[in-house]
Write a protein that binds this DNA or RNA. Structure first.
Lengths: 238, 238
DNA sequence: ACAAATAATTTGGTCCGACCAGAAGGGACG
DNA sequence: CGTCCCTTCTGGTCGGACCAAATTATTTGT
């Protein structure tokens, strides 16, 4: 029994959205349960199905709900992960022009800088082990193979895992997702592979040494050189 | 004359979305110009207005388009800023539960830590001046007044501005937007105001001293204490 | 001739009713 | 007990309709 929200408000579906969000936050529809069908909501709120659909669509795109293709009313995803995936979505949009890429890369540098600092200061045994494992996997992989690049990225992934904060990986993962198609245009120099690996090695060593300053410096050098690579690829495209 | 996109595809509006995005990226609708009206697009794509509206809505929510309230077909925003505002949107959703708040706050700490480091290392005259101005404005404001809190936040804002990266402020601004309504529940101790101001002062001094390590430490202390404040407010709500 | 007031048109916002195609649920039958 | 079929439910799409606001065109007043 929501108040009547069709009074004087200029917008329409936004009221429904607010109300639904409020109800969800209030725990009315626990995670994973399904909302009433559109036609029910329509009666319940005294509005047309059009508005209901708009509200549901919006919330779905934003990640709070999950509207399955056909049938299955609407299932609420564990809101949190959903928001994260929405974040990935948006970040991907951010990557539509070079300025956006630059800024996002910049953001990544800042985040990972804090990441390695934190790692150098507070990394526990398990974290070190995970980093070591990623590093060794990378070393074992054949240079220039898909597996090599995969393990290469995995190293950074572990860095994010150490923070135990799902918000950060979302940014990283969107970035990597965007980058993949561009990779085909990048020159795959085995020499560069080596550089990458050695940079990771140096970062790892700095973390082992518990030297945040050095770790950050190594990471900056590493990412700066990666950025140059991206730039060169971009320039070639122009 | 887009190819027919109504063949066998399971989805519907998604095709229109893809097509519109492609056209926009191709420069068909330059920034700031307005798209054809819904009814025109409807004919053009051979689909119902329902689908057109869904596509437009989605792109609007994602920030690529701007659907004005009434009349005015659809105007394309300078895509980049749009994506930023969408990011704010998503981040706001992230703040729906305590875990999300904690993670976002954590993210904020990491970002601002990098921020002050960068400021301590590379801040130019103008940056220092801006920080000083923000600080003095805060000092001049009457404790516990709205203006005080405004200038208080402004200090952090300048920190973000120094990075000249619009992605970061989006996160911060979403956070602040979310926090505002919670403020009414927070105890407004003049003593705490002082603490805040002094913390900012110390951060500023560290930047002046070009001491990244100290600056980061001061910032961490500052934000950690702010976090405790937030927690206490939350707990009281439970 | 120009400006202001007024009428006509355009356009998004909302609503309604209808149909389709999968999916879910319920039986009938082997 | 499992399988097949039929009904019902639900989201997806469609077309038409009306409204109100914003725009544009027209008329009017000076």
């Amino acid at each position: 029994m929501p108040q009547d929200e069709d009074k004087k408000n200029g917008r329409a579906a936004d009221d429904v959205i607010r109300c639904l969000v409020a109800k969800i936050h209030a725990g009315e529809y626990p995670d994973g349960t399904q909302l009433p069908p559109e036609r029910t909501l329509m009666e319940e709120y005294g509005i047309s199905r059009t508005v209901v659909r708009e509200a549901v669509q919006t919330l779905s795109r934003q990640g709070l709900l999950e509207a399955r293709p056909r049938y299955r009313p609407i299932v609420r995803k564990p809101g949190y992960d959903a928001a994260i995936s929405a974040l990935e979505n948006v970040v991907t949009h951010l990557l539509s022009d070079q300025k956006g890429v630059r800024n996002l890369f910049d953001t990544r540098i800042m985040i990972e800088a804090s990441l390695v600092r934190r790692a150098a200061r507070h990394a526990v045994k398990e974290d070190i082990a995970a980093l070591k494992a990623a590093l060794e996997a990378n070393e074992a992989a054949i240079p220039d193979s898909d597996q090599f690049y995969q393990t290469d990225r995995a190293f950074h992934g572990v860095l994010y895992d150490i923070a135990r904060n799902p918000v950060l990986p979302a940014i990283h993962s969107a970035y990597v997702t965007w980058l993949s198609p561009q990779w085909s245009r990048m020159p795959r120099l085995p020499q560069r592979n080596l550089e990458n690996f050695e940079a990771h090695q140096r970062i790892f060593d700095a973390i082992l040494l518990r030297d945040p300053e050095l770790a950050e410096q190594e990471l900056r050098d590493h990412l700066d050189s990666a950025w140059l690579q991206v730039c060169r690829t971009f320039d070639k495209a122009d």
